[in-house]
Amino acid sequence: MKTEPLADRVVPRRRDVSFLVDGRPVRAAAGETVAAAMLAEGERCFARRRGEDRALLCNMGTCFECAVTVDDVPLTRTCMTTVRDGMDVRTGE
């Protein structure tokens, strides 16, 4: 399985927000969207459709390929959601 990040930060940022992705701790910079942080931190699966991993596609709230469960709210679009300390992200819905 590939672990290479799909994207990276153009400039290094202080990552002082931390949240969980499927129980794993992930660090992000304040103001980042969940999608941007997940991509830069090497997450490659957002939604899952019939067993296929899907990742961010449109980044504007249209396609729902980046939708995950955040704090028990399903179909939350990570591209439209800003990171918060302690948020609980579940991928693969």
């Binding site: 799909l6 994207a7 153009v10 400039v11 969207t33 991509l39 449109c58």
Partner: peptide
């Protein structure tokens, strides 16, 4: 999508690999 690559870059300063 093109809009996604651009949006990530200009609003999040994250670039595709």
């Amino acid at each position: 999508m093109a809009g996604a690559a651009q949006g990530l870059l200009k609003a999040q300063h994250v670039r595709a690999t």
